[in-house]
């Protein structure tokens, strides 16, 4: 298993898309972790009255804000934190919840299955954005709320995919062979079935994270994020209200835009690379379409459908190994 997982990262690294993704993502993580050392100024410092609205220069690489004189470059660096944390935490929570529900539905079956799948059906038709607005109004604006809502409503697509994969694996001959050797349900679930869906989980985490990063920027722009935090979406909102366009301070707008682009781009790349690794014959689709679909929870389902169209998962994993 260890050898396998090593292989996995190596293969992702060797994949051209995967490598750009990993490099950019690592860079972003580095910025997020060491923001305090990279950023030349304190981005929360709103007392620099004399430094308002400066154009980019050597001392302020991206200038300062018109309203409060904060250093935009420092804000950009600090903004990485919110974007990565919200994106990744939601991605991981969603994968966790989706895996749990999918495994329960597929492996336990019966009434549990029916209950979970009916819940999924209901969840799929609830619109997330209006609900977020309502809930943040009730419980206050925070990133925790955003993570919570996207997790609660984001696991459904993944759960469906995991469930159908579990159903395939559950009836596979190797599970039957393990049963014959006296394996318990736990053994089968954690040693055969869960490892059989981990690639879906990792892929889903990367793609969901990318989707959530865009969503987070949007929500922050609408003022639904934590008002005290510095995030790229909020920077955009500030730029708009602070008159960046009016004064022609395009760098104030472009900077957070690039941040959002890089973070989403890197995670999408990783997700797409993973997908091509697991299913080499998949056509390269338009990234934007996929991103849009991932926001709608329908994306992974469609990937899975395409996978299953012409070969069984067992056969495809065989090919994947041959390719390696």
């Amino acid at each position: 298993m260890k050898k396998n997982s090593n292989n996995f990262f190596l293969r992702l690294w060797r994949h051209p898309k995967g490598r750009t993704g990993i490099i950019i993502a690592m860079l972003l993580v580095f910025c997020a972790v060491f923001s305090a050392y990279i950023a030349p100024y304190d981005p929360y410092d709103v007392t620099q009255r004399a430094e308002k609205g400066l154009a980019p220069s050597l001392s302020h690489p991206l200038g300062t804000t018109i309203t409060t004189g904060q250093d935009i470059f420092s804000m950009l660096i600090y903004g990485t934190r919110v974007s990565l944390i919200v994106g990744l935490v939601t991605g991981i929570c969603t994968a966790f919840l989706g895996a749990l529900m999918g495994l329960l539905a597929g492996y336990v079956g019966g009434i549990v299955d029916t209950l979970i799948m009916r819940t999924v059906d209901i969840m799929l038709v609830i619109p997330t954005l209006p609900l977020t607005i309502v809930l943040t109004n009730i419980f206050g604006k925070s990133y925790f709320m955003i993570i919570f809502i996207f997790t609660i409503f984001g696991w459904t697509g993944l759960a469906r995919v995991i469930r159908s994969q579990v159903l395939v694996l559950k009836n596979s001959n190797y599970v039957k062979a393990a049963e014959l050797a006296g394996a318990s349900r736990w053994h089968i679930m954690f040693r055969h079935i869960l490892p059989g869906v981990t690639h879906l989980l990792i892929m889903s985490t990367a793609l969901t994270s990318a989707g959530i990063m865009v969503a987070e920027a949007g929500l922050s722009f609408l003022g639904l994020g934590d008002p005290t935090a510095i995030s790229w979406g909020k920077m955009l909102a500030d730029a708009q209200s602070g008159g960046a366009l009016l004064f022609g301070h395009w760098w104030w707008i472009v900077a957070p835009g690039i941040g959002i682009f890089l973070s989403v781009f890197s995670f999408m790349r990783i997700g797409l690379a993973l997908e091509e690794m697991f299913n080499p014959r998949m056509k390269q689709g338009a990234g934007v379409r996929k991103l849009f679909k991932s926001l709608n929870n329908t994306y992974i389902q469609s990937v899975f459908d395409e996978m299953n169209e012409d070969d069984t998962p067992v056969a495809s994993s065989g090919k994947e190994a041959v390719q390696a």
Binding site: N4, S172, A177, A178, A181, G182, H187, G196, S317, G318
Partner: peptide, 25 residues
Amino acid sequence: FQDPFSSLDPRWDVYRLISEPMYIR
């Protein structure tokens, strides 16, 4: 099994595959 392609977990190496019954017991 009839089909040696589907009766072995593709993610397990030979050592794990052969020792699985002993491990379970």
